[in-house]
């Protein structure tokens, strides 16, 4: 199982698409590691600097419809090779969401109000998040406070996270 704990990158926009996560020109790579320098390269967002802001981050918190567009699994891979194994959002595009779980990574949906609360209270601070799989809790910590937020994912999703992805599970069961 992967690690699901660390510093948070906040991206305050909906509909961030997979072309923005990893541009098509890098799809000629045939290793995941090669995608590392180009994560979120084409994302235009006020105050966001890909080179500086991605460093040391392990969790991404964003708004609605994250990962829309192309089916490229290069998007979760580009996150993974940068050490980001968790994305928390109001909602996800279907293929991106499934790709995350297929790679044994977390794509967690939270209600719009909760996402708003996280942005209001934790964005711009040195915030960390840990996913407690056993208790279905997101533990959010910043310099001045810490709290737990419930989350819910399906049994299939959780199994894929625990098994490290879909290939291993499918090979055993089909």
């Amino acid at each position: 199982m992967k690690e699901f704990s660390g510093k948070v990158l906040f991206l305050d926009r909906s509909d961030i698409n997979t072309d923005e996560i990893i541009p098509a020109k890098y799809l000629t790579e045939i290793t995941k590691e090669a995608l590392k320098p180009n994560l979120l390269e084409d994302l235009t967002l006020t105050g966001f600097n890909a080179k500086e802001d991605i460093k040391d981050k392990a969790v991404l918190v964003t708004r609605a419809n994250f990962g829309c567009g192309s089916s490229r699994e290069h998007a979760p891979w580009a996150l993974e090779v940068n050490g980001i194994n968790v994305v928390i959002a109001e909602s996800f595009a279907r293929i991106f969401r499934q790709n995350m779980y297929n790679c044994g990574m977390f794509a967690i949906e939270l209600p719009k109000d909760t996402i708003e609360y996280l942005f209001e209270n934790y964005a711009g601070k040195d915030t960390s998040i840990t996913i407690d799989i056993a208790k279905d809790k997101i533990i959010v910590t910043s310099s001045d406070k810490s709290e737990e937020i419930d989350f819910k994912v399906g049994e299939f999703d959780k199994t894929l996270v625990k098994e490290g992805g879909w290939v291993g599970y499918a090979d055993k069961n089909y």
Binding site: Q98, N99, N102, C103, F156, W166, V167, A170, D171, Y174
Partner: peptide, 20 residues
Amino acid sequence: AGVGTTDLEVGILKGVCAFH
């Protein structure tokens, strides 16, 4: 349905795919 590389990989190997 469009899928990612892992779903494709399992499709190639096992001829199945999981959907909600």
